[in-house]
């Protein structure tokens, strides 16, 4: 039987488009006939803090939040945030992580804290299935740093039982019209990364 429930944890920093990404996944999953709940906390987090969104897809969903240690997929828009969230994932889960590194002022202005330069290596040491996407570089190439979220959606799309057409339609619906073209290209670049990655 094909797996029919997915718990996806999306993590990033305020302003990276975490909420739009979780919105697109939820709408796509509904269009594919699933029950969906998604949960996030906004407010203070807008101001450069961590943003986390839980998306749960199944025939019937109860809790709007995922239980620690049970996420099937972690989608991290920032590498250290991916590392911070790793214990939310089950061992056989897949972490999809952007090479984006955002170092907060509290680290630069004090000697008390360090940013883990080796976040991706630490992540790979802890989790078996890690797909690293140079989404920040690709977004730059495409001419808009805000495309990191759509690129990562492209990487993830093949892991869910949702048709490609549904993903594309949902992006067209959810993204402002003048950004649709570029987002579809970003999505395709993500799909390409997934095809070339070793994890299947």
């Amino acid at each position: 039987m094909e797996k029919d429930h997915f718990d996806i944890l999306i993590v990033g920093v305020g302003g990276q488009g975490v909420l739009l990404a979780s919105e697109i996944i939820s709408e796509a999953a509904i269009a594919a006939g699933y029950d969906v709940k998604k949960s996030e906390v906004h407010g203070m987090s807008q101001r450069g803090g961590i943003v986390t969104s839980h998306v749960r897809v199944a025939p019937k969903v109860y809790s709007p939040t995922i239980q620690q240690g049970t996420a099937d997929i972690i989608l991290a828009f920032e590498q250290a945030e991916g590392l911070r969230a790793v214990n939310w994932m089950k061992p056989e889960g897949v972490a999809i992580v952007s090479t984006t590194a955002l170092i907060p002022a509290i680290v630069t202005s004090s000697k008390q804290f360090d940013y883990p330069e080796d976040a991706l290596d630490q992540l790979k040491a802890k989790a078996d299935n890690v797909i690293v996407a140079e989404a920040d570089r690709i977004a730059g190439e495409l001419g808009n740093p805000r495309l990191v979220n759509t690129i990562l959606l492209g990487v993830m799309s093949a892991l869910l039982p949702i048709d490609r057409e549904v993903w594309l339609d949902t992006i067209k619906k959810k993204v402002k019209e003048r950004f649709v073209e570029i987002n579809l290209r970003a999505f395709e670049r993500g799909e390409q990364i997934q095809r070339e990655s070793v994890v299947s």
């Binding site: 920093v13 803090g49 250290a80 630490q122 802890k126």
Partner: peptide, 20 residues
């Protein structure tokens, strides 16, 4: 009770909200 099998990252820096 299902618990995390992957250990959390250690010595992580905080990312508190800040003025824009």
């Amino acid at each position: 009770v299902a618990v995390s099998k992957i250990a959390p990252a250690e010595n992580m820096f905080p990312r508190p909200p800040v003025l824009c």
